[in-house]
Structures are given as structure tokens and as C-alpha cells.
Design a protein around this nucleic acid. Structure first.
Lengths: 195, 195
DNA sequence: CGTCTATTTGAATGTACTCAAAAGCGGTGG
DNA sequence: CCACCGCTTTTGAGTACATTCAAATAGACG
């Protein structure tokens, strides 16, 4: 289990003493998730926020018409959770499952507050994480308003150059907000133009 | 100047002593913004986060094709800022102007960190604000994927029952992500069905 | 009252979706 | 190792939702 991934992440934003780091880690649970297994189901209470040590998770909702919409991919070094559910204690609308075999560290809901009490500096860490998420999701919303599907795909390729090749393309379609059929046609067009 | 609006807001999340509250307020600058005046222009560095005491602001970007997209309305008791710019120190892509005469309290960029140092509890306050913003904007993104324009409009009316009647409808169109022309036709349809 | 902006209306167009079917591909078991 | 099964991707035709552009009408404000 490579907890250094998490510590390195934390160190980018706050400084903890070795003792604090140890305490910090003690709040987490280690878990392995096999490909296609779920970490969270829609309509249940999100039991923890997860930090991905390796592998890749995906977060998505299924809407009233039965369509999947991927909100987030979480490869190594990413956090993922249904924050609404974690914070409110109510059932959320996010599914989280594993795209490949994945190892995570879980920070259970009920120990979050204890962590903040015991190491107040971590409050800052999570504030910064929240801010960063907010900024990127805000940008994504704006992009959805102002960009065409093709442009959103190009942007996605730029932003996630590593995972774009490993993902089934129906996932990419879902992330950028088009049907798999349309995505396929779109890609064909792009390839045709490129030569 | 009714600073109680801000204090009441803060009190919902953290407890400050009267002395701390006084200190807290001392970090802010009061400002009046006349209707149609700007608080922030795209491509400039966002100098502060703003809390609306009364009136109403709007935050929006203008995309490469010259179209406005409204990200947020900020009536009384709301915060607004280009968080990307505030946090990174880089020029952002948000415009903020006043829909009506508005009074705000500004927390300048450079004193934010001082505030956190002097009253660490405020770190928590802003963490919670960030979390709440994140949740609502995430939901909005999902709604944009799964809902039709009509459904987004109905949702908007439910979510902002008070301001929906006072806003020029082209603003509502911009917020939900359709052209003013289409919005007009859509509204007509809805009224026709309703009788 | 006149001007400027917001809203409505209409016709033509475009982007993306639906549904159906075929083709491709990967994993699994015989 | 190959054949088969299930899932993903492609293709095509028809359709729907929303945009564009242009022009008319209505409202707001000095």
C-alpha cells in the first residue's frame, strides 16, 4: 500500500509533522476495488471520501431517462466522493465504480470532523481541494455552454492526454455529454479532416 | 450599512466571539455599485470576494463567439467572485456587474490569508462555503446534461422563485443556456399548455 | 414623445439524438 | 487455439430540439 501518494498530495498544500502525518493516515481505511465493482451506489449515503492510490474510478449519475452521465474520472492522486451526500448525510445521486482494479484510502464520513478537530491544518487542505474542484467544475459548466461537442472532445483530449487513450470511448462520450453514436460519427469526421 | 446580513450568514456555520466578529468585519471594505456598473471585468485579476448586503449582482463570461453565459446571480446574502482569479492571482474570465443598485462587503485578495491566520475558525467557514458551491454547481452541470431546456427553466423557477420574476428574461435564457429567441418560444408553449 | 433595448415571430438551418442493424473486438470456455 | 458470446463501435435514415438571421412589436426610460 503506497500511502506516500496521499502524503505527497497533502504536502503540496500544508505542512504536517511526521507525527501528524502518522495520525493523519490513521484516520483512513485501505480498500481494494476490483474492476467493475462499486464503491458507491446512487440513492445510498456516501460513507466516505476516497483517495485513489492507483487504478481509476469513475463517478456518474443515471438520470430519469436511464442515461449515464459521467461527472468525474478519478485516476491516481485524485479524490472522489459524493460531496453532497457526505456533507448532508442524505442519499446522493452519484455512482462510483472501478474502471480497472483500484486501491483507495477512505476517509469515512464520521471521522472527517474528528480529523479537523485533531489536526486543524487539515481544514485548510480540504478548503483548498474544494476550491480547486469548484474552479474546475465551474470551467466545465462554462465550456458546456460555449463549446460544441467537437471542441469539448478536443479539450478533453488536451486535459486528460493520458487516460483519453485507455478509456472506452462511450465513457468519453458520456463525459463530454453526447451519445456514443454521435461521438463515433464526430470522431470519424475529425480523422477525415486530419489528412 | 447592514453588516448583520454577513454576520448572520457566518453564524450559521461557525461561532465567533463579539470581539472576533468585530475583527472579522474589519477585514472588509464596504462598496456601493450602481445598476449596470461593473465590479469585475473579464481578463483582469479579481481583487476581492464580494458578499452582497442588498441588491443583486450577476457573474458571467463572454465566450469566443461573443455570447454571454451567466454563471451566477448573487442577490442578498450571497457570495460572488472569480475564485480562479482570486486563488491563482491570474486574470480570470468572469464579469461581475450590478443588475440593480447593490451594496457589498469586499474581502480583498491579499487579506484573505491574514484573516485565516488571525481567526483560524474562518477557514472552516470558507471551506463550508466552497463545499456548498461545489455541490450546487455540480448539480447544475448534471442538470444541463440530463434536462431539456424546458425542464431547466422549470427548475430555475423553482430554485429562484423570488428573482425569476424580477429578471429580464434574456438573463434567465442565458443562465439556463438557450438563446433569448428560443426562450421566448419555449415560454409561449408553456403558457399555451397551461390553459 | 422618441429612442434604445427587450421580446416576439417566422422561416431556414444545423447539431445532436433516436432507432435499428451491422460490424468489430475481447474475453471465456470448450 | 479457436469459436462463440456479449459488449462496444460504426453506419444510416429519419427526427427533434435549438440556433440563426431578419424583421416586427412591445416596453422602459429619459
Amino acid at each position: 500500500m503506497e500511502t506516500t501518494v496521499l502524503l505527497d498530495n497533502v504536502r503540496r498544500y500544508i505542512q504536517l509533522t511526521p507525527a501528524e502525518e502518522k495520525t493523519f493516515l490513521s484516520f483512513f481505511e485501505f480498500k481494494k476495488i476490483k474492476k467493475k465493482q462499486f464503491l458507491l451506489h446512487q440513492r445510498s449515503i456516501c460513507p466516505a471520501t476516497a483517495f485513489v492510490l492507483n487504478g481509476c474510478l469513475r463517478g456518474y449519475t443515471i438520470d430519469d431517462n436511464g442515461f449515464e452521465h459521467i461527472l468525474q474520472f478519478a485516476p491516481q492522486d485524485w479524490w472522489i466522493a459524493d460531496m453532497y451526500s457526505v456533507l448532508s448525510g442524505n442519499p446522493g445521486n452519484l455512482n462510483i465504480d472501478a474502471i480497472e482494479d483500484t486501491e483507495v484510502l477512505l476517509l469515512p464520513r464520521d471521522v472527517r470532523e474528528k480529523l479537523f478537530e485533531q489536526i486543524p491544518k487539515t481544514e485548510r487542505y480540504f478548503r483548498i481541494l474544494m476550491e480547486k474542484s469548484l474552479i474546475s467544475i465551474r470551467q466545465r459548466l462554462m465550456d458546456n455552454f460555449s463549446l460544441s461537442a467537437v471542441e469539448r472532445y478536443k479539450l478533453f483530449s488536451k486535459t486528460y492526454p493520458t487516460i483519453v487513450h485507455t478509456l472506452p470511448q462511450k465513457y468519453i462520450a458520456s463525459y463530454i455529454g453526447v451519445t456514443p453514436e454521435f461521438f463515433s460519427k464526430m470522431k470519424k469526421e475529425l480523422l477525415a479532416k486530419r489528412r
